[in-house]
Design a protein around this nucleic acid. Structure first.
Lengths: 334, 334
DNA sequence: GCAAGTTTGTCCCAGTTTTGTCCAGACATT
DNA sequence: AATGTCTGGACAAAACTGGGACAAACTTGC
């Protein structure tokens, strides 16, 4: 048990009250306790007055178990599985009935890798797979890496570096455009599918995710969509290149609580300021707008003036969103 | 023929409850039991409390049997066939079978008879999901529909009509750009993931799939990629908007046997003729180039002159590829 | 073309297992 | 004081099982 905790990079410190867990997982308080009583699905720590205290790790497990149940699994079969195996079970489902590739899931070898070394190593392996046009190997590497890390860690420690390496190599001529295309197309698929490992209860607050007119690169936006969906938000993903008016209309129709825009290239497109201003003017005050991506810093001034948010990392975005959501929770409670 | 296909083996360990099997195959729980009772279609293991436990092998068989049934087979004829024979039956069906009309078996609730009505119904449901920005419902409908049909049927009978309806509605103003964006983004993900339902042995001939410079719509290309992969080809998918030189380089590096290009919009882009000619001039004679998509007919003349192939339907493309592959196989044997 | 027989999806039953919800009384938190 | 959490248990709904019934659609024989 303790071994598992050191592998997974998810926070295992117990701090969340049961109500919050219920809220975030979409389960009822009663049900969480019943599962604990019957199958020891989770065994949360206790406060000095016997209140249950759950960790992020626990929440993640409960969330996965809920998904697996919905797919038709029986509780007894999955209740005590460790997080990694649960991820396997769920991802097997999300790919619907296809045949698996690597039966040897429990390979002790990877538990010995120190995090960073493994990253550099897999990064090279991925780049090699791209250079040799080995799409299948590339996919395999991505899958493996995702299973090893939590999603946020995967995005930040593997995907972000990979993207910048690809960009670099393409610019410098070390990689053909064809290779870059192949990698991008594949990542587009991979990231898109990530979002659907989660299921939604319908009660999650919504966030509209897209890129403004002229911005054709959507990988950043997709990363946000995937990330956000494991934190109890429901992303409404519009793809790239959406006019401000359309974004606003979408926010309205979905009663979304937030918008996330991703800016990468071209950084100095003259339409950006116009579109941002236009969007802001059409939105309710209560809707938070996040602007991220490599090119966001170029427009820092404008973003500040319009009262938009400009998180500098995925983690910052995540924290801000948590706050936004838990705020709603507080309001509902009191 | 059959020898090559038996390479990939499916897990036969019993672990799935009946509900999950029902979810994945699209059959009712009742029906699965009835089939077992009458023909021993599958004989699942049992848990210690008599619950049925199915293996991946069982699930795959049930899926194939369902498809075969839908094509008009009688249960008694196929109930006890081993997996490989079932695959043969089904693949034969999906290639030639759609034209038959007599077999009108029964009409279970999940059957799509009468063909057109039911199709129109799901199509409406999908359009409604899009209009209400209900991404999840949309995904659900797509999944359901895919389970019900074989992949080729799904692409031709559901996806193609859906795409043209969306295009129509957007042009006429009945649908917002935001809705179209949402639907397109989602379909991009959905189609991309389809390709990975198949497993590859690495011995399949390769086909490079993309769209030429200026053509930004990739859904058609993705459909081809998905389709081709169930017919024993390995797609090398490059995404949209790839310059001719890069396509040629990719073909070379992968020693691909064929190229598939998709043309949709803009139909009269002046770069198209140049790019096609340029591509053709750089390729080996033995590489077959297919040009498809709504805008392909505009360039019929040129395509013919360059000696490219212009299949008018997915089925035609499929037949041609099949021929190509068998030809190569013959050569290898003799 | 019609009647008799078959095939097949669905439904109902009664008995068991699994699972979600609810309650009561004690204690904690705000 | 009002609200939320805790434990332990009770209860009911849902799901699964074997068996059988039934009607609709299909096939066969005449």
């Amino acid at each position: 048990m303790a071994i598992l905790e050191t592998i997974s990079s998810i926070d295992t410190s117990p701090r969340h009250p049961i109500r919050l867990v219920a809220n975030r997982t979409g389960l009822t308080v009663d049900l969480i306790r019943a599962w604990e009583k019957r199958y020891q699905v989770v065994e949360p720590a206790r406060s000095d007055t016997q209140r249950r205290l759950y960790s992020d790790y626990d929440i993640e497990r409960l969330r996965l178990i809920r998904i697996a149940k919905q797919a038709g699994r029986r509780l007894a079969d999955i209740a005590t599985l460790p997080l990694e195996s649960l991820r396997d079970v769920v991802s097997e489902e999300s790919r619907y009935g296809e045949t698996r590739e690597a039966p040897e899931v429990h390979r002790p070898s990877w538990s010995t890798f120190p995090e960073d070394e493994a990253s550099a190593e897999t990064l090279d392996a991925m780049l090699y797979a791209i250079q040799t046009m080995d799409q299948h190997r590339f996919d395999q590497l991505l899958q493996e890496n995702l299973v090893k890390h939590s999603l946020p860690a995967f995005l930040e420690k593997t995907l972000a570096p990979l993207l910048s390496e690809i960009g670099e190599a393409t610019r410098s001529g070390g990689m053909r455009i064809a290779h870059e295309h192949m990698a991008t197309a594949h990542l587009r698929t991979f990231l898109g599918a990530l979002r659907f490992r989660e299921t939604f209860t319908g009660t999650e607050p919504r966030i509209v995710i897209t890129t403004p007119t002229g911005q054709l690169h959507e990988l950043g936006a997709l990363m946000v969509a995937a990330l956000v969906s494991i934190d109890g938000w429901m992303p409404v993903y519009l793809g790239p290149n959406t006019p401000a008016d359309e974004i606003a209309a979408c926010v309205q129709q979905c009663s979304a609580r937030a918008v996330s825009l991703s800016l990468t290239y071209p950084a100095d497109d003259p339409r950006i300021p116009t579109e941002l201003a236009r969007l802001k003017s059409q939105l309710d005050e209560k809707v938070t707008v996040f602007v991220g991506g490599a090119a966001a810093s170029v427009h820092g001034d404008l973003i500040h003036r319009l009262g938009l948010q400009a998180p500098t990392s995925l983690k910052e975005l995540r924290d801000h969103l948590q706050q936004l959501r838990d705020l709603a929770y507080q309001r509902k409670v009191s």
